[in-house]
């Protein structure tokens, strides 16, 4: 079996069969209780960045906990490179044009946060996105299209209000933004309420 198939199967298993949070009572039917004594939360907004050696993007994710008592949810993500990046295309042998490229990504997926302690957990997510792009000064268009999205890492949560939790996430993200590398570091800061 190819490694990628094993990886996707493992991710799907963990997303569907992962452990429940420490305390899981829910009155509203759709909520997250992450560790004992924390407020129930169903919605989360995260300000995010994914970055690699010579590229980066800033964005935001809205996440909704769709299964009671677990942070198994769906997410909607948008991100964009906050600057134009140089791209060189070979038009014919010995003739190249260097363009300024602007690129962004819209993605949806499923996501779960698996608690390890009251504040610390592991998150896993998978989805699909569509990357759109534009070149400056030309009607020529850069490559656009679908990309799988997979992400995993550590999350930290702490109460910031009676009804809200502060959330910090850091880890790895796979997305194909038509550059040289599909592997990205990922950080996020947000609030769940």
């Amino acid at each position: 079996m190819p490694k990628s198939t094993i990886g996707v199967s493992a991710l799907a298993f963990l997303l569907l069969c992962g452990p429940y949070p420490a305390e899981g009572g829910s009155e509203e039917g759709v909520s997250l209780r992450y560790g004992g004594g924390e407020p129930e939360v169903a919605h989360a907004f995260l300000a995010e960045s994914h970055f690699q050696n010579e590229d980066m993007a800033l964005g935001a994710t809205y996440r909704y906990a769709a299964i009671p008592d677990r942070f198994f949810g769906v997410f909607l993500h948008f991100s964009a490179r906050p600057y134009y990046d140089e791209r060189i295309e070979e038009i014919r042998p010995g003739f190249r044009i260097m363009y300024d490229e602007f690129r962004y990504l819209i993605a949806v997926g499923i996501d779960e946060d698996l608690p390890l302690t009251r504040h610390l957990g592991v998150f896993l997510g998978a989805g699909a996105g569509y990357t759109l792009a534009d070149y400056e000064a030309t009607s020529r268009a850069p490559e656009e299209g679908w990309t799988p999205l997979a992400q995993a890492g550590l999350s930290f949560r702490a109460r910031i209000d009676e009804e809200a939790l502060g959330v910090v996430r850091a880890g790895y993200r796979y997305i194909d933004l038509r550059g040289d590398d599909t592997n990205w570091w990922y950080i996020a800061l947000g609030v769940a309420f």
Partner: peptide, 19 residues
């Protein structure tokens, strides 16, 4: 406006295009 700067060498030509 679009601006094309042409860098020519013996091997190849690179156009840097900005707007």
């Amino acid at each position: 406006y679009s601006v094309a700067a042409e860098y020519r060498s013996e091997e190849d030509t690179l156009i840097v295009l900005r707007g």
